[in-house]
Each structure stands twice: as structure tokens, then as C-alpha cells.
């Protein structure tokens, strides 16, 4: 409900802003401003939410709104992949990451001091300025809209229906090397993550609780071993900690 309220408040603000700034109600622009406004609000929610899972959910809403923006740009494949990778996979990764971290899953998160917030704020503002300047300085930023002739509806539809095929052709011919490099990058991240995670002593100490391959039933120990650190079921210190 909070999320919904925030989003609709964002719509309202965005609508007012749009009337104030643009003066004209172009339908496409109106939709864009509303989606973008809601996305900005979700981003703010991500930063401000006290509970990390709520924060991650705002981020998921933000990802979805970005997918909506891709649809508006008629980049259907990209939008679908945005949902597939970011909501389907990265969100799960985030959730598991939160569950992995001590003392942040609940609602008793301690507030960070200004000293720790300041560098983050500086980095964020710096990144924003950098991106804004980079976008502004693109030579075709202002000209592109006015000078390029809009393609006909039929031509656009033909291209859009062939989008995945065209993408594949480009990827395999023109962008062959980057494509392979992405593969290398993926492999590096996979290997790196697995290697980093492995030497943790608690994980390799499987001697205390590894089920013998022949164990026929799922014992209560098996259940409790799911919690962190491979602690033995009798002690379970992380279950009784305050």
C-alpha cells in the first residue's frame, strides 16, 4: 500500500510537473514523464526504506518501470530481457544476498552516521553529474529529434517484428569480439565467485553434518543445517541470539 501510494503520488507530482514545465500535453511525453516520475520515486524508496527487503522491492519496481520505458522506446526484446534478468534473476540474487548478511534482514537495522553517508552522497552526485554532462555533450542529443526523419509505421513494424533476428545478426557479425569478451567476463565472474566462496571454513567442514549418501530420511539435523555457518543442531547459537 505504501508502495502504491508513493507511486501514485509520484504520478501526481510528475503530472503537475509536466503541465508546469512542458505546457503542452503530448500523450507520449505524458506517459514518459509519469513512468519516469514513478521510477525516480521508487529509486528514492530504495534508498530510504529502513528494511532491506522493502528496499530491494522498491528496486524491483524500479526495474519494472525501466522495462516499461524500454517498451515505450519500442525495444521489446530489451524490455523482456530487463524483466528476465533483473526481476527474475538479479532480484533473487539480492534477496539471497540480504539473507546471507548478518543482522540486516529484519527491521532492527541501525542507522548509519553522517560520516558514512557523506561519501556515498558525494559519489552518487558525482556520478549523476558525470552522466548528465556526458549525455548533454553528445553531438546528436539535441539535433537527433528534429533533423532525423521519422520512419514510416510499416517500416518500423517490419523492423520490430524482426528485432531478435536483427540483434542476433549484429551480435554475431559486427559485435563478435565484444560478445566473446562478455562470455569471458561471465566465466570470470562465475569462477571468481565460486573460488571466493569456497575457502570459508564453515563450508568445507562438512564432516559434522554431511548426510551419508544412504540416509533415507530427512532428519531434523538436515533442516537446521540450512541456517548459516554449518552449526551443529544442538547448539544453534544463531537461533537463540537476542
Amino acid at each position: 500500500m505504501l508502495l502504491l501510494m508513493l507511486v501514485s503520488a509520484g504520478m501526481l507530482v510528475a503530472g503537475l510537473w509536466e503541465i508546469l514545465i512542458f505546457r503542452e500535453f503530448g500523450p507520449m511525453r505524458g506517459v514518459f514523464v509519469q513512468i519516469a516520475g514513478a521510477a525516480v520515486l521508487c529509486a528514492v524508496g530504495t534508498v530510504l526504506a529502513r528494511n532491506l527487503i522493502h528496499s530491494a522491492l522498491y528496486l524491483v519496481a524500479f526495474f519494472f518501470l525501466v522495462a516499461c520505458l524500454f517498451i515505450m522506446l519500442e525495444a521489446e526484446f530489451l524490455a523482456v530481457m530487463q524483466v528476465l534478468v533483473f526481476i527474475g534473476a538479479v532480484a533473487i540474487l539480492l534477496m539471497f544476498g540480504i539473507m546471507l548478511t548478518q543482522d540486516v534482514q529484519g527491521d532492527q537495522v541501525e542507522a548509519h552516521s553522517v560520516l558514512r553517508r557523506l561519501p556515498a552522497a558525494i559519489v552518487a552526485i558525482g556520478l549523476f553529474v558525470m552522466l548528465a554532462v556526458a549525455v548533454q555533450q553528445r553531438p546528436d542529443f539535441s539535433k537527433a529529434r528534429t533533423e532525423r526523419a521519422a520512419p514510416s509505421v510499416a517500416a518500423r513494424e517490419r523492423v520490430l517484428n524482426q528485432m531478435p533476428q536483427e540483434l542476433g545478426l549484429d551480435l554475431m557479425q559486427r559485435w563478435c569480439l565484444p560478445f566473446e569478451l562478455v562470455g569471458l567476463l561471465l566465466t570470470a565472474s562465475l569462477v571468481g565467485a565460486v573460488a571466493l566462496a569456497q575457502p570459508v571454513g564453515s563450508l568445507s567442514a562438512g564432516s559434522d553434518g554431511t548426510p551419508s549418501p544412504g540416509s533415507l530420511t530427512e532428519t531434523p539435523e538436515h533442516l537446521s543445517r540450512e541456517v548459516a555457518g554449518g552449526t551443529h543442531s544442538s547448539s544453534r547459537p544463531d537461533l537463540v541470539s537476542p
Partner: peptide
């Protein structure tokens, strides 16, 4: 007894990470 939202094992995260890599593939 105790808190439900406790620290879970690294294993889940590893599988999620593997999943992201193959999803990007």
C-alpha cells in the same frame, strides 16, 4: 524461539549467482 530472519548459508547465494550467469547467457 529466537529470530526468524537469521543469516542463511552462502550456498544459496552461490546458486543464485550461477543462475544469474546462465540467465545472462
Amino acid at each position: 524461539q529466537g529470530e526468524t530472519w537469521i543469516r542463511f548459508r552462502l550456498q544459496y547465494y552461490i546458486f543464485a549467482l550461477l543462475f544469474v550467469v546462465f540467465d545472462v547467457e
